[in-house]
Computed example of a mutant assay.
Amino acid sequence: MTNARLGEALRLLGLGPAAARVYLALLELAPAPLSTMGPAAGLDDAELATAYAALVDAGLASAAEEGGDMVAPVPPTAGLEILARHRAAEVEESRIAVGGAFESFRRQRLAAYNDDLVEVVTGEAIGPRIRHAWASAREQIRQFESPPYFPLTGATEDALATLARGVTQRVIYSRESLEHPGRLHEAIEPVVNAGEQARVLPSVPVKLVIIDEAYALVSLSIKEADVHNTMLVVQPCGLLSALVALFEQSWHSALPLHGGTTRPGGLPPADRRLLWLLAGGANDDVIARELGISRRTLFRRLQVLMARLGAANRFQMALQAQRNGWL
C-alpha cells in the first residue's frame, strides 16, 4: 500500500495528517525511541506528542514504557474496529442534527419563505425540472441517491451525457440503492464505469441533487408517500449552504465505490458487485438475488474472497478490500 493510500485510510477513520505521518514512521523504524519519530514525520516535539497520543488512544501504537521511550505499532484489529464505530456514530449524529434542522425549517418556515429562495415544484412539472437541472450543470453535481425513484425515462443516459460534457458527478448511494432490484447493474455501474465518483452509506438523510453552487433539488422527505409529487428548488441561502455541508461531511465518511477500470488482480465483475453490496450493508438474501446465485454459492464465494484477502471475518474483508482498491 502506498503512503498516500494508507494516509487516506487513516483519515477516513478519523486520524489527522500528523498522526498518519507518525504511523508511517513507526512502520518503517519501530521498535525505536519515540524521539526518532519526530524528524522522520517532520514534526516538532509538541506536535509529535499530540499525534502519538492520538495513535495510542486509537489502539494503533504502544505507550512508551516507564523509564524509557521505546515505541512500536500494535496489531490494529481492535483499534480499527473501534475507530470505524466512532466514525459511524459521528455520521449518524450529523445526519440526525441536519435532518432535524431541515424538518424544523420545513414545518415552521417554508410557508413564510421568500419565493425567490425556495420554490415548490409538484406533479408533472418535476420530471422536466430534473432533466433541466442536469443539463444546466457546468462544473459539478452532488447527489444523495436512494429509493423511491421518480419514473424518469432516460435518467441514466442524461447522467452519461453530463459526464461526457466534463461535469464532475459525485453521488452517495444508500444501501437501499444497491439492494433495489436491477438498480446496481442497470443504473449505477454504467455511470461509475463512465467516471462518476461514487460512495455508499447505510442510509442517506434526504433525496438531494446540488447543481454547481447554484441551487439544489430536495424531496420534502425520503419517507413520505408523496415523494414523487413534491420537490423543493432551493436557491443560494443558508439552507443551501447547510445542504452542501451535509453532503461534504457525508462524502468524507462514505465508502468509495470504483468502476471496472480499477480492478487490481483481475477481480471478476461478480465479485466486485458482491463486495459493493456487502459494503453497503445488504443482507445475504439480497446479495444472492442480485448475483443470481444461491446462498450456498454466495457463502463459498465469501470464503474464497476472505482467504484471498487474509481476512478472518466480513468486517476485515471489507476493510482489506478497500485498502486494495477493490471498492
Rank of each mutant, 00 (worst) to 15 (best):
Q140C: 06
G100V: 13
P76A: 13
I141Q: 03
I141W: 00
G99N: 10
A30P: 01
A49Y: 06
I96R: 08
G100W: 10
R107N: 07
L60F: 12
V118A: 01
A40D: 06
I130P: 04
G127E: 15
L27W: 02
L27H: 01
F102I: 15
T77Q: 10
L83E: 09
D57T: 13
R95G: 14
A89S: 10
A61F: 12
L27F: 02
P76N: 14
I126C: 05
E119D: 01
E65G: 14
F105E: 13
M37E: 05
H86L: 08
D44N: 08
T50P: 08
R85K: 08
R85C: 02
V120G: 07
A88Y: 04
I82Q: 15
R106Q: 08
E139A: 05
P73S: 14
Q143N: 04
T50D: 15
L117A: 07
V71Y: 12
L34C: 02
P75N: 15
G100C: 12
A135Q: 00
G42D: 08
F102E: 11
R142E: 01
V121W: 07
D44E: 10
A111S: 03
A101C: 09
V56R: 14
G100H: 10
A125D: 01
G42W: 04
A133W: 04
F105K: 09
E65T: 14
Q108W: 07
T50W: 00
L80Q: 01
I130Q: 00
Q140S: 02
W134R: 00
M70Y: 06
A101M: 09
H86P: 00
S136H: 00
D44T: 05
I82N: 11
A101L: 12
T50K: 12
S104G: 04
L60E: 10
E119W: 05
V120I: 15
E139Y: 06
T36P: 06
N114A: 07
R129A: 03
H86N: 07
P73L: 14
